[in-house]
Design a protein around this nucleic acid. Structure first.
Lengths: 214, 214
DNA sequence: ATAGCTTTATTAACAGTGTAAAGGTAGGAG
DNA sequence: CTCCTACCTTTACACTGTTAATAAAGCTAT
């Protein structure tokens, strides 16, 4: 009486095909163009058949995101296990693993954290979206002074601050709320810290920008 | 012959109403539920009428985002002008202005930077999406040691690193590419810097976590 | 003033979306 | 062999963005 298991295996197989199809379409043409009908077409079933396996499109994508989290966790774990016992080295490798995952599986990362990539693809120079960068860069420039490669340094520090602020905002907006007070504390401390490395006399920006030399 | 101007004023007025209606719906029920028909309903015109003013829904939302950038720039500028001439103090206030804008106008911020908030609203404890946090926290814990309020400190450092990494990834995915090499450089330097403040003996985490005491 | 043209808006329609309800069909259980 | 359950399909509904055809209004020039 292994027929039950065979059927279960079969169902599991279809479920897996659905997920694979959705991911393939998402990777190929972006998440916006993923539709139940296209998935159904791809697995050669009728659209409502999918609802035997997932309650909604939302649930389907969420399951895909969940698998993404499993994969991400696996990579982070590997990074730790493949390194020696120094916690700092471990952390660096673990974050590098996180980083690598995000780009290797960028489509998964998008649904995991709701990063819309179709929004404002303003790549032309001097649009309104680039005014903030200009404003910040000007003031950062005052701290950097007239050194060599000032432009590069300013850009680097601007992106460092921006990444931090934008990341913290995104995480808050997505719903993983820290208490606002803690977020703001993290914010000001981090920005202040980054700025201090700019001010520090004799700083060697390209090596250890976020800590004074001992 | 001021009729031409009167007409232009009228058109500009309608255009503005369209934008206002879209923003109102977006604020009220989320951007996903903004539709041309609802906008049309709201301004008491037929749906295709909107296409006299905007080439597409995409263009409409992009214009809304553009106005958001103007507003953001304005706030950053004000923050600078309202402070004294110390660049560091200015930068702190400018980033605080950026932060405040993001939450005061969070719906605008969403379309400006493509932050989907409807994605994975996993607030239950111990889901797969929280495994990465646990992995990192464990290693951070090794650095923190058995001090008082270790949990809080770990959380704070985890969120600091995560914000940074996620922000940098998001910015790259959105399309404002820095050369990958520079991004990775910023990444490792920042993480390393944050970690070092943990390791530093006698560190005073709540005051100056990202720089050693002189 | 009237003819014609431009602008502005409408209605109708197309192709696509997620999803629910109803119906059929096959396979296992009694 | 009958019944029942699980699976799947067809049909349908209420939406979506967008286009084509059309009508009405207003300005311009004869």
């Amino acid at each position: 009486m292994g027929s039950k298991e065979r059927i279960n295996r079969h169902k599991e197989n279809i479920r897996c095909n659905i997920l694979r199809a959705a991911l393939a379409i998402g990777k190929g043409s972006g998440w916006n163009s993923v539709s139940m009908r296209k998935i159904a077409d791809s697995i050669e079933y009728s659209p409502p058949a999918i609802y035997e396996y997932f309650n909604s499109k939302e649930a389907l994508l969420q399951e895909l995101a969940r698998l993404g989290f499993l994969q991400l966790s696996e990579r982070i774990n590997q990074a730790r296990n493949n390194s020696d016992n120094d916690p700092k080295a471990q952390l660096l490798l673990m974050w590098a693993a996180y980083w690598d995952f995000a780009f290797a599986e960028q489509h998964l990362y998008q649904i995991m954290f709701g990063v819309e990539t179709t929004c404002c693809d303003i790549n032309e120079p001097l649009t309104d979206s680039q005014v903030p960068a200009a404003l910040f860069s000007e003031v950062i420039g005052l701290l950097v002074g007239q050194v060599e490669k000032a432009g590069e340094i300013i850009q680097k520090y601007y992106y460092a601050c921006w990444s931090f602020v934008h990341g913290l905002i995104s995480i808050n907006l997505i719903g993983r709320h820290l208490p606002q007070k803690i977020s703001e504390q993290i914010l000001t401390e981090a920005i202040s810290g980054i700025i201090d490395t700019l001010i520090a006399p004799g700083n060697n920006l390209s090596k250890e920008p976020y800590i004074e030399e001992v």
